[in-house]
Simulated assay, not measured.
Amino acid sequence: MPFLLAAALCSVLVSVLLKLARRLDVDIGQAIAWNYVVAVAASTLAFAPAPATLRAATAAWPALLGLGLLLPTIFLALAGSVRHAGIVRSEVAQRLSLLISLLAAFALFGEPLSMAKGGGIAAGFAALVGLVWRPSASAGEMDAGAARWVYPLLVFIGFGVIDVLFKRVAQAGVPLGAALLAMFVLALLVSLVLQGWRLARGQARLGGRSLAAGLLLGMLNFGNILFYLRAHQALPGRPTLVFAGMNLGVVALGALAGMAVFRERLSRFNVAGLALAILAIALLARG
């Protein structure tokens, strides 16, 4: 359980750091690029993957390339979601993205659909609607209102597709350490291209704060992955407990951080969506 708590805490602290980025004058794009420098170094040290395993897994490269492109771009969407919709909605949208991977499991990977999973999927989509529902008070707030639901939806879809691609990589037989290193290297290259373009156009300047934030972001991001894997190793016969504990822990800690620390306000629809999200996670874990 300590590993689960540490993994959930790292996940929520990533959102807290993204929430504080503007106040601390941190360039999110640069921080994300530095984050992948840390992720590449940490993956190399922690897993010491053999390059030969990647050269042999030719079937996995389309999915790995997709992951390399999606990881940095969905990180930007997560930052936008935290900024416009808040930590609570963003964390729940990220957790509910498992609905996409479950639908893919039924449609693409031949997994049977149980009553509990069916109920969990239905509750999950209802929760998503409740969480992003935020009617604007006037026509002048239309753009801001749109950002509050567009970004969480992008997070929901993006992380769901990432999970499906990761399953494709696992099917190809690529060891976890080698897969993580390849994804992080590709994501770093994409991030460098994006930031190089911004620097060339004068849209950004290199800054020490962005470097420091990126290094911290990378440690938290990798810590989330590492502690989650350690939780599975510590509880090898209880994967459902690990899955449910991680998701419910992130939702609970995210709600606590968002509402208690940042004074995020939730409407009745949002609160109902949060309750449905917890129900959905419980049903999916049981199923």
Rank of each mutant, 00 (worst) to 15 (best):
F3T: 07
L9P: 06
C10N: 04
S11I: 00
V14A: 02
S15E: 05
L17Q: 08
L20H: 11
R22Y: 06
R22H: 11
R22V: 10
D25G: 12
D27T: 01
G29H: 11
A31W: 13
A33V: 13
Y36A: 08
V38I: 13
V38Q: 15
V38W: 05
A39D: 10
V40E: 12
T44A: 15
A50V: 01
A56G: 05
A57G: 02
A59P: 10
A59D: 13
W61M: 08
P62E: 09
L64S: 07
L64G: 12
L65N: 08
L65M: 06
L71C: 02
P72G: 07
P72H: 12
T73R: 07
L76T: 10
L78H: 10
S81W: 04
V82N: 00
V82I: 05
H84C: 09
H84E: 09
G86E: 13
I87R: 10
S90D: 04
E91G: 06
V92N: 07
L96Q: 11
I100W: 13
A105K: 13
A107R: 05
L108Y: 10
F109Y: 15
E111S: 14
G118E: 12
G119T: 09
G120M: 06
G120T: 01
A122V: 08
A126L: 15
V129I: 11
G140V: 01
M142E: 10
W149I: 11
V150I: 02
Y151T: 07
L154K: 04
V155W: 13
F159M: 15
D163E: 15
D163L: 02
L165P: 10
R168M: 13
G173C: 10
V174K: 03
G177Y: 05
A178I: 03
L180R: 07
L180Q: 11
V185T: 08
V185L: 09
A187C: 09
A187I: 07
S191R: 09
V193N: 03
L194P: 09
Q195M: 14
G202A: 07
Q203I: 00
G208C: 04
R209T: 15
L211I: 08
L211C: 12
A212M: 09
A213N: 15
G214D: 00
L215C: 00
L215A: 00
L216D: 05
L217V: 00
G223K: 02
Y228K: 01
Y228N: 00
Y228A: 00
A231T: 11
A231F: 01
Q233L: 09
A244H: 02
M246S: 05
M246R: 02
V250A: 03
L253G: 10
A257V: 13
A260R: 15
F262S: 14
L266D: 14
R268M: 08
L276A: 12
L284C: 12
R286P: 15
G287M: 03
